[in-house]
Simulated assay, not measured.
Amino acid sequence: MFGYTLAAVLLATGMARAADEIKIGEINSYSGLPAFTLPYRNGWQMALDEINAKGGVLGKKLVVVSKDDGGKPADAITAANELVSSEGVVMLTGTFFSHIGLAVADYAKQKKVLFLAAEPLTDAVTWSKGNKYTFRLRPSNYMQAAMLAEQAAKLPAKKWATIAPNYEYGQSAVAVFKELLSAKRPDVEWVSEQWPPQGKIDAGAVVQAVAATKPDAIFNVTFGPDLVKLVREGNTRGLFKDRTVVSLLTGEPEYLDPLKEEAPEGWIVTGYPWYDIKSADHDTFLKAYQAKYNDYPRLGGKGVMVDFVYLDGAKYLPSDDVVKKLRPQD
C-alpha cells in the first residue's frame, strides 16, 4: 500500500490444532463491494501460495478460512465467532467498512484474540475504541486527511463544502479533515455538509445542495458506485468547473477505473499509482501479481500482500504473549 509491504505476526493460541496446519480467519464484505474486495482476496491468496511454497509458517501449512460479512456488523460477529470457536483460527483479519471493523475489534477484545484490521480507516479502530488485541494495516483517516489538509491549506480557497457517506468512515474523515485544515487555515469557512447514505447517494440532490452554497472547494469522501454517480452528475451540472476538489481514496484504481473517460482531472487525492511506484519490493509484487492474474493490482491486492514475521524462538503462544511482542512499550 503506497509502495510498502505490510506485516502481520502469526502465532497460535493454546487451543488444540491440526498438527500440520495453522489457520487464519478472514472476514470481508465480498458481496457488498466486490470491486475492492476481490483484488484484496487475490492479494492474500497470492501471499498464501508463496508462503506455503516456501514451507509455510513454523513448518506448518498456512490455511485461510474466509467468510463474507455481507456488509453487516452482526453477520461479521457471527462469522468471527464461528471462525474462533468452530474453526480454531489463531487470529482474525480483514473487514472493509469501518463500522464492521469496530464491531470485530470489540469482539477481539472480549475474546482476547488477535485482530489485524485490513481496510477500516476510522481512527477509532486503534484510538478511542482501540484495544491491545487490534492492529491496523492501512494508513488511517487521520494520516490520509493530514496529507490532504497539508495540500489544501496551500489553496486560496476559503469556503469549503464536504460530501461524505453517512457512517463511521465518512463521519470520521470529515471531522479530522475539518480539524486539521481549520488549524492550518483559521480563515476557512465550512458552508455545506452533505451526508448521503452509503451506496444510495442521490447525486443530483447532493450536487444541487452543494452548488447552492457556492463553495470555493470541496472535500469528497464518497467512493465506489457513489463516487461514479457524484462525478457524473457534478460534471453534467458544472459543479467542479473552476472549483478545487480534495478527495479521499479517489486515486485508488478500484474507484478511478470505473469512471473511465469521466475521470476527473486536477483533483487532489490519495491513492495507489501502481504504474508509477519505483521500488524493488513493489516491482517484485507487481510482476508476480501480473503473472498470476494477468491484470494490474488494485490497492486492496497490494494492501493485504502480507509478510509473516517470525518472533525469535517462538513456538505456540497465547494471544497475550503475541501482544507483548507487538506492543513492547506497554
Rank of each mutant, 00 (worst) to 15 (best):
T5F: 06
L6I: 00
M15N: 13
A19S: 13
D20Y: 04
G25S: 11
G25H: 10
G25Y: 08
S29E: 14
Y30L: 13
L33E: 05
P39T: 02
G43H: 11
W44Y: 15
M46Y: 04
L48I: 07
D49S: 14
E50K: 12
I51K: 12
G55F: 09
L62P: 06
V65S: 13
S66T: 14
D68F: 01
D69I: 02
T78I: 14
A80E: 12
L83W: 06
V90K: 06
V90R: 07
V90P: 00
V90N: 04
L92D: 05
G94R: 12
T95E: 15
F96N: 05
L102V: 08
A103G: 14
D106M: 03
D106N: 14
K112L: 04
F115I: 04
F115N: 07
L116C: 07
T122Y: 03
D123I: 03
T126N: 10
Y133D: 03
M143C: 05
A146D: 15
A146Q: 15
L155R: 12
L155E: 10
K158S: 08
I163S: 09
Y169S: 07
Y169L: 12
G170P: 09
S172I: 02
V174P: 05
A175Y: 00
K178V: 05
K178W: 04
P186L: 05
D187Q: 10
E189Q: 13
S192V: 01
S192Q: 12
G199P: 07
K200W: 08
A203L: 08
A203S: 14
Q208M: 05
V210Q: 06
P215T: 03
D216N: 07
A217M: 08
I218A: 10
N220Y: 00
F223M: 11
F223H: 13
D226I: 07
D226S: 10
G234W: 04
R243W: 02
V245W: 06
T250G: 07
T250E: 14
E254G: 08
L259P: 13
L259E: 10
L259A: 10
A263P: 11
P264G: 04
E265Q: 15
T270H: 09
P273E: 13
I277G: 11
I277D: 09
I277N: 12
K278M: 09
H282S: 11
T284E: 13
K287S: 15
Y289V: 10
D295W: 02
Y296A: 09
P297K: 05
L299I: 06
G300C: 04
G301W: 03
G303M: 01
V306F: 13
D312R: 11
K315M: 06
L317I: 15
D320N: 07
K324R: 13
K325H: 14
L326P: 04
P328L: 08
D330W: 14
